[in-house]
Amino acid sequence: MHHRPTDQPCFASFEPAVLRPAELTAFSRGGGARTIPLVTRATGAEVFLTGQTLFDGGAGIALHTHNCPESVTILEGDALVEIDGTEHHVTRFDTTYVPAGMPHRFRNASATEPMRILWIYATVDATRTIVETGVTARVDAEHAKATPRDNG
């Protein structure tokens, strides 16, 4: 008798989902940036965390690190990304990879046009530590406590 592989995925509790950012709540990050959580523990994720951040003209986020690797793809607009002290100009569909613990930040390269990124963290337990203050918080906790804002 031979053993047949099971059809069960390694993480069976994650139900299929179609997530539409235009229909989801955006949470203000301050300074003209707002985040739309996508694949999160709340949707059943056990392995990775994804979402989008929208930047108004001139908006940016503080220099920070994470406890896991992160990849970001520019979906709209132009950005300046600082990674470990080096600034790079990135545009639509350009993608970054930042190892755990490496300081980085994104800002909108345009003073007037919007910019949007897709981010992926290598764990649902991702944290963000602000370099200037040393304050660490779970990325998904920011979504729970932040003030919802229209994502239009």
Rank of each mutant, 00 (worst) to 15 (best):
T96E: 13
H89G: 02
F106N: 00
E82T: 15
T65R: 01
H88A: 09
P99T: 14
I83G: 02
V72Q: 03
I36C: 07
T50W: 04
G101M: 01
D125N: 05
Y121Q: 06
T133C: 05
I61A: 02
V81Y: 00
G77W: 04
V81T: 02
D140Y: 04
A111S: 14
V90E: 02
H88Q: 12
Y97E: 08
V139D: 00
A45C: 07
V81C: 13
F48Y: 15
Y121K: 10
A111L: 10
W119F: 13
P114K: 11
C68Y: 02
I74T: 14
T53S: 03
V135P: 03
A59C: 13
A122I: 02
T129F: 11
A100M: 10
D78A: 09
H88D: 08
A144L: 15
T136L: 09
G101K: 06
T112F: 13
E132N: 04
I130H: 10
G85E: 03
M115W: 01
G57V: 01
T65W: 10
Y97I: 04
P99H: 14
L118I: 05
G57S: 11
T127M: 06
A42N: 05
Y121D: 10
V139L: 14
W119E: 00
H88P: 04
I120D: 03
T43P: 03
R107E: 10
V131Y: 08
D56G: 06
W119G: 00
D125L: 11
T96Y: 00
T91L: 09
G77K: 02
I117W: 01
A137H: 11
A109G: 07
D125I: 05
I83C: 07
A45Y: 04
N67E: 14
G101E: 06
T73I: 13
I117N: 09
G57Q: 10
Q52D: 08
G101D: 15
N108W: 02
E142K: 07
D94Y: 08
Y97C: 13
G77S: 13
R41A: 11
R138N: 12
A137L: 04
N67Q: 08
V47I: 05
H66W: 06
E76M: 06
H104C: 04
I130W: 06
L118Q: 12
R105E: 04
W119D: 00
S71D: 03
D56N: 15
R41K: 11
D94P: 01
D125G: 06
G77V: 08
Y97Q: 13
R41D: 05
T50L: 07
D78I: 00
